[in-house]
Design a protein around this nucleic acid. Sequence first.
DNA 1: ATTTTCTCCTGCATGC
DNA 2: TGCATGCAGGAGAAAA
Length: 274
Amino acid sequence: MPELPEVESLVRGVRDALLGKRIANLVFYRPDIREPIPTKRLTEILRGKQVNDVVRRGKYMLIHTREGALGVHLGMSGRFVVSRQSDEMAPHTHAVFQVEDGMEFRFVDPRRFGRLFSVELSETTTHPFLSRLGVEPLDDDFDLARHLFDASRSRKQCVKVFLMDSEVVVGVGNIYASESLWRAKINPQTPSKSLQLREFKNLARHIRSVLSEAIDAGGTTLRDYRDKDGNPGYFQTNLAVYGKESKPCPRCRTTLCRMTQAGRSTFFCPFCQK
DNA sequence: ATTTTCTCCTGCATGC
DNA sequence: TGCATGCAGGAGAAAA
């Protein structure tokens, strides 16, 4: 379940491995993942081209050349792993990007919720997958609390669902929404419009700290997430509430609860998060 | 217009 | 042991 910290960890590794390198060739094994992979256009953009930049936007990774970019979304179970060309091919390998240095990156995704897409030079911000994304929670250039406060005034949604709206703020998925609300001692069912600016300031601080700590730990691996070298993250050992239903709250020892909000599991402490 | 539900898919846990 | 069932979930599409 890659969210912002997992994608950021991956992007940093891919950037180190790929920046300045040339993509020698591309091989597609299964172009019909969530959406058909634009194999022809991706080949035009990448083959024989040098990688200029590798960046994250929300939960998307963008690998740029002077012709455009490859967009990658890991979905639920996607991996983007560096391999030797002689390594055995993992099941569910859908695409391979061969690098001039003899290594290659492989996109592996058992559940096929992920996507590979092409981004033209002219649409790095206007591409349909990118244009509607909300703010980056770790950007320092603006007031996250103020943004959340303003965006929530006209909403009926509860704060947990609101936080997970990628048109409001990107990268906060099911795990980090639950974790940051627990840290901020806010009940996930609280209507977002009823929170005051002061409470959003506290919440924003905790969103940033939990995401930053998770990046430092290489992300959270519950089942599928791996970095480019196939290594898991380690932040799952620091999770306070996610997946901890019926375990004691780390703060007050009250038994943690699980509920469903907008079809997603939410974990919380019924005592701390009143 | 906003918000909820559905959909995509496979692997794993559960229950009989 | 084996099979059926259900659940997990990011995010766009569809429905409400």
